[in-house]
Simulated scan of single mutants.
Amino acid sequence: MNSGLTFRTALLLTLPPLLWAGNAVVGRLVNDLVPPITLNFLRWALAFVFLLPLAGWVLKRDSGLWTHWKRFALLGLLGVGCYNALQYLALKTSTPLNVTLVASSVPIWMLLVGWLCFGQRVSRRQIVGALLSIAGVLLVMSRGQWALLAQVRLVPGDIYVLLATLSWAFYSWLLSQPKEPTAIRQDWAAFLMAQMVFGLGWSGLFSAGEWALGDAHISWGWPLVTALLYVAIGPAILAYRCWGIGVQRVGPAIAGFFSNLTPLFAALMSAAFLGEPPQIYHGIAFALIVGGIVVSSRR
């Protein structure tokens, strides 16, 4: 961990934002075809099937998974059960660009979580950077109208994505604290599979609640099948693989900076596929968020 940011590591950390931006756009496109929490469950169930030939051994009794079940249950809850389910919920009432912009505050939550829960020191420069980034998030949440903040009229999707971001911050810090067996840790497919085992349980439970409490339905067809294949292979397997490597190499705080690339990709994809061009306040908000991260990450 913290071995320094190389060009290869930077490329690894750039791929997840690209895939996550596509995930937000796809989630918005299919929100009338499948309930959001059910989409998250189907996504991970499909990813589980894809990984089974590569990491099926981790399900054996002597693999170490069941000995460390509490850790994997927590990782599965935060990274599989909650993070994307909350993002898909957010996309019911917010746009992909708004969701990804608010989510780009994740480095700030990385600093707060690291300070409060993992004993990491926070400098004055990091505090200034945090304030700049928070200002950017508030600008998005107010839709460019600061008076709305005084009225506390928040779109539900903004709250969901903030909860998702907090969940991801805890998840990333836990990744940087290795406690699982070496055999699982060194096998990326096994490590992700170990999280999926419990994450599927969490997401399945949440999905059952969604069907029990609401008027849920699924409209099967090639659009939904294609979307499921994308979110299972790209944002789930490939993105989690690259993010895990990046966090191990440079730490959560530096890796978190790359999440700010997601709104740029989301803006381009939203304009191309959803007819939702970015507004001026989106650009100002992104400048504030990135400026805050640059300030806070300087040594």
Rank of each mutant, 00 (worst) to 15 (best):
L148E: 08
L91D: 06
L154H: 14
G119A: 06
I127S: 14
L78A: 14
L91K: 03
S123L: 09
C82Q: 05
A90E: 07
L89K: 07
V99L: 10
N84L: 13
M110S: 06
A90K: 14
W115T: 09
Q120R: 11
G119N: 05
T100Q: 14
G81V: 12
V106S: 08
V161T: 07
T100G: 03
Q87G: 12
C82A: 12
Q126R: 14
L148R: 11
F118R: 02
Q126V: 07
G144M: 07
G136W: 05
R125F: 10
A147E: 11
F118I: 14
V161E: 03
A135W: 12
S142Y: 05
A90T: 11
D158A: 06
N98I: 07
I159F: 13
G76I: 08
R124H: 09
W109Q: 08
G79P: 05
A85S: 14
L91V: 04
V99C: 14
S104Y: 01
A130E: 03
A90F: 09
G79E: 01
L154W: 07
G119K: 07
V137L: 15
Y83L: 07
V113N: 09
M110C: 11
S172V: 03
W146M: 08
A150L: 13
A169S: 08
A85Q: 00
Q145D: 11
Q151I: 03
A150T: 13
L139H: 02
L116K: 15
L101S: 08
L101Q: 02
R121F: 12
R143E: 09
I134V: 13
S133D: 02
A135E: 01
V106G: 00
F118Y: 07
L154A: 13
A103R: 00
I127A: 06
V152R: 09
G129E: 03
P156C: 04
N98G: 11
R153Q: 12
P107W: 03
I108D: 02
C82V: 13
Y171T: 08
V122L: 10
G114A: 12
G119P: 05
